[in-house]
Design a protein around this nucleic acid. Sequence first.
RNA 1: GAUUCCGUAGCUCAGCUGGUAGAGCAAUACACUUUUAAUGUAUGGGCCCUGGGUUCGAAUCCCAGCGGGAUCACCA
Length: 567
Amino acid sequence: MSLIELSEQEIQRRESLQKLRDLGIDPYPAALFPVNSSAKEIKNDFEDGKHVCIAGRMMSQRVMGKASFAELQDASGRIQIYINRDEICPDEDKTLYNEIFKKLLDLGDFIGVEGKVFKTQVGEISIHVTKLILLAKALRPLPLPKIDVEGRIHDAFTDAEMRSRQRYVDLVVNPHVKDTFVKRSKTISSMRRFFDGFDYLEVETPILQAIPGGAAARPFITHHNALDIPLYLRIANEMYLKRLIVGGFEGVYEFAKDFRNEGMDRTHNPEFTMLEIYVSYKDYNWMMDFTEKMIEKVAHDVCGSTEIEVGGNKISLKAPYKRISMRDAILEFTGKDINGKSETELKEICKELGIETDSSMGKGKLIDEIFGEKCEAHFIQPTFITDYPIEMSPLCKKHRDNPELTERFELMINGKEIANAYSELNDPIDQRERFEEQMSLSQKGDDEAMFIDQDFLRALEYGMPPTSGMGIGIDRLVMLLTNNISIQEVLFFPQMRPETKTAKIELNDSEKIIFETMKELKELQLFQLKEKFEMSNKVWDTSIKTLTKHNLIKVTKELEELWVRLS
RNA sequence: GAUUCCGUAGCUCAGCUGGUAGAGCAAUACACUUUUAAUGUAUGGGCCCUGGGUUCGAAUCCCAGCGGGAUCACCA
């Protein structure tokens, strides 16, 4: 990389790096630094005069002659340090303070300090530094948001694209972002503890699958060289977990990365995390009790309360939650009863409600549309929607009272689906018929062909105990718990279009032509050179400027004449 | 995919009906021994997203493209 591509500040930092080396200081020392405290700990357990040793990034610096204040940021937060010239440099040589601390250290550098805890005259807990060491130099300047006396943030690093692409920077300068990801981690560990309390087994199942099943979504495809077969990245892990239930485990769960090759927006990322859990000898009623208890606990562990505020809505996650059948939900919000209606009658209802339909939609899809359009958004407080039409739920057991319905529920919170659960279908013959029905439905539309997983059916034929299963989109749950409307905010590294890096030193065509010509002619007047090419003024001007900037040519004014020369 | 808004200094943003760029913070230099958005003085820093057009002249107006945000559509 040539220096020409670097910004002024980056060049300065590289120069500082070299000066440090010249002074015999290793800017990237290898030895461990004996940290024995943290910013948070020092502030929380203030002990005047306590000797501490901590490390972190220097995030601000206020030099006042022979004394300075700086802020050090570690994983726990920030703490102020006080540095006095004559204390860190007791001898004649004041280089450490005057040169190294004041000039060669930059904001963002990792430093380690040793000293005593004290309170300044204004009452801020600080460290009175006796020893200072550089731990790692930063060559790029960080964006530096500042907080004023009234708590307002200035110059915040807010560009959503840059924040996602350079999450490391986002995490350094935006503390609330870090908090979101801490909550994400707590969400998962809280759920894990809840499941482990029941002695359910955490398992791992294949991500590379020969038949991508368990959901209707377009998969990513890849190829296995040795076997010479296509393999798919899983869209769900449901059918593998059920095989484990067949195998005799009575409670299994997996936090699974699933992959769906579909559109990306603020609620969809190509890879996302799904929790699926399956428990033998239970049904969906039991699973509702289980789910609401779990959500209540998670809210408590993560937010410290079951009362949360999301997008202006106050939501109580305290169990139990309201339960309403899909039929009653639609009845309540549209006045229409879908019970026992034919496909034609349902289409008529859609028409009356102003919902567009097309020929590929079966009964299940039509009902789903009505619910999605007219009901879903109303369920702000946690609500279980139960008993979905059979067409929508090919892996779910028929309802014990009504063969048109299934024993399925979805948990709606803040108008969004958070969980989805079944009394799992364990009748292998029924399951085969449903798969075949699904095949014909997908052929009705022009969707990709669905595969029938014969091995899964074989497993069911050996017998699967009655089982209830539940899935939760972890990303969406975290969005809810952290009051984020965008999935990108709860993923460390959301999928992005690749950065198009334009190597700035690379010349475009017009610049190349001018440069080639100049290589031959060595020097001539500016207007003579211009006449040699047919270029718009703009192209001419920017090309000349680019070449000058890169120090390839020089333009000089001599006696009112502009001369161009090769540098 | 549709509509719409946006792209200017390391960061956040001004820049009017066209006249070759401004502020604050950050950077550089000097002063200052308990400050706290430290302060004061001075200095440097721009492919104004890319390409084309209109014009004597474009950051500004027009067209196309690229990138991003928002809304909608799609999405078990």
